[in-house]
Design a protein around this nucleic acid. Structure first.
Length: 156
DNA sequence: GCCAACGTTGGC
DNA sequence: GCCAACGTTGGC
């Protein structure tokens, strides 16, 4: 199976590429959207590339790269009563929510702002540039991934 | 902080 | 199964 590519969003208040650089790996718990869950549960594989995207940031954009180091497994935070991510619909026997683990790869010298993504040829189809797109885990093509990496590594 | 767009829920 | 109401996301 060929390597696939993804974009994963996170608000800087919750987690940043610098946190990931420090932690080396982290579990991506708390996703409570079925489409995003399906990608993590069914499609992500160890070694897949990840664009790390900071949402609700100043400016929002891609701040670095990560990779999948553990593919989909049940999100246990959904089982913990009182936990922020608790969901009574999810049980150990029949988990509803899944997560993956990602590992640090690279921190870009500067953020690649959403505005740049929007104005770059070849990225028109990316979900993140489309108005009203709220999907926090989304597939990207290899071509899109490579363009964003090139933008991210560019000296500015 | 505002608010438009979205996904989910629940009454019918 | 429709759709209004609601809560959340996320750019600005």
């Amino acid at each position: 199976m060929a390597r696939k590519f993804w974009l994963m969003k996170c608000e800087p208040d919750a987690y940043t590429i610098d946190d990931l650089a420090r932690d080396k790996t982290t579990s991506w718990e708390g996703v409570r959207n079925y489409q995003a869950r399906n990608f993590m549960r069914d499609d992500m594989q160890v070694g897949d590339g990840v664009l790390f995207y900071a949402s609700n940031a100043d400016p929002s954009g891609v701040t670095g790269l990560a990779e999948i180091v553990q593919d989909g497994y049940p999100d246990h935070t959904a089982w913990t009563k009182g936990h922020h991510y608790f969901d009574k619909a999810s049980t150990r026997e029949k988990p509803v929510w899944y997560m993956v683990d990602i590992g640090f790869v690279e921190r870009f010298p500067g953020v690649v702002p959403l505005e740049t993504l929007k104005s770059t040829t070849g990225l028109e189809q990316m979900k993140v540039v489309q108005k009203g797109s709220r999907l926090s885990v989304q597939p990207v093509t290899k071509a899109e991934f490579d363009i964003v990496v090139r933008l991210g590594r560019k000296k500015r």
